Simulated scan of single mutants.
Amino acid sequence: MFFDSWSGLLRVVVIGLCVYVTLVVALRLSGKRTLAKMNAFDLVVTVALGSTLATVLLSSEVALAEGALGLVLLIGAQYAVAWTSVRWRPFRAAVKSTPTLLVWQGRLRDRALREQRVSRAEVLQAVRSQSLGGLDQVAAVVLETDGSFSVIPANSAGDLGALDDVPDVHRE
């Protein structure tokens, strides 16, 4: 239960180092986007990478070459999805969500809050985290595609061009 054999420990060390080097090289080759802030699709790939890494590291039934190929395949698929989504709008729409406007000109958009399952308290917390005392000081709060909140204070909203990709901004 606590110790099987020295060869098992040696296997974990050797395989662990090899698969670690493979993972680092593959991530460096795939570019910064692979490790960017995650949307839902990125999170799934990251969890799959972790699961694959753990399986290769701890299961003697999976050869190093198989595990390394699995890691490279997942990273390659992530790269292909990111590359395609930048170049083909219908594909991007299929794999990525769009930002959602939660507050506009100081008013909560209750329907958007319900649809996105965001509470009023969460929005107020995001506003407070920007050192703003009330919604009257807010031009917009956007739920971003990675699940984070962007708060745009009314006094620094400018022309609101940063909201061009957010649906419903100019329709109200």
Results as ranks from 00 to 15, higher is better:
58 L>F: 14
9 L>W: 12
139 A>L: 04
12 V>N: 06
31 G>S: 04
80 A>T: 06
130 Q>Y: 05
19 V>T: 15
11 R>Q: 14
81 V>L: 10
5 S>V: 03
130 Q>K: 14
39 N>E: 07
112 A>P: 04
118 V>K: 06
133 G>P: 01
111 R>T: 15
120 R>I: 13
135 L>H: 12
157 A>P: 05
67 G>K: 05
143 L>E: 09
87 R>P: 02
34 T>S: 13
149 F>I: 09
108 L>P: 00
68 A>I: 06
4 D>T: 15
134 G>S: 15
34 T>R: 02
135 L>P: 08
17 L>I: 14
171 R>Y: 13
119 S>W: 01
70 G>K: 03
73 L>N: 00
118 V>F: 10
16 G>Q: 03
111 R>C: 00
90 P>H: 00
125 Q>F: 07
75 I>C: 01
149 F>P: 09
49 L>I: 15
23 L>R: 01
119 S>C: 04
64 L>W: 09
81 V>Q: 03
57 L>E: 07
95 V>Y: 08
165 D>A: 12
7 S>H: 13
146 D>E: 02
69 L>D: 00
5 S>Q: 00
131 S>G: 09
126 A>V: 04
64 L>T: 09
125 Q>V: 07
67 G>R: 02
36 A>E: 03
45 V>R: 07
57 L>H: 06
53 L>V: 05
92 R>N: 14
107 R>M: 06
19 V>N: 04
84 T>V: 14
138 V>Y: 01
66 E>K: 07
74 L>N: 03
130 Q>W: 05
65 A>R: 10
166 V>S: 05
23 L>C: 12
103 V>C: 00
129 S>I: 02
108 L>W: 06
1 M>A: 15
20 Y>D: 06
49 L>C: 13
131 S>F: 08
41 F>N: 08
116 Q>P: 13
38 M>Y: 05
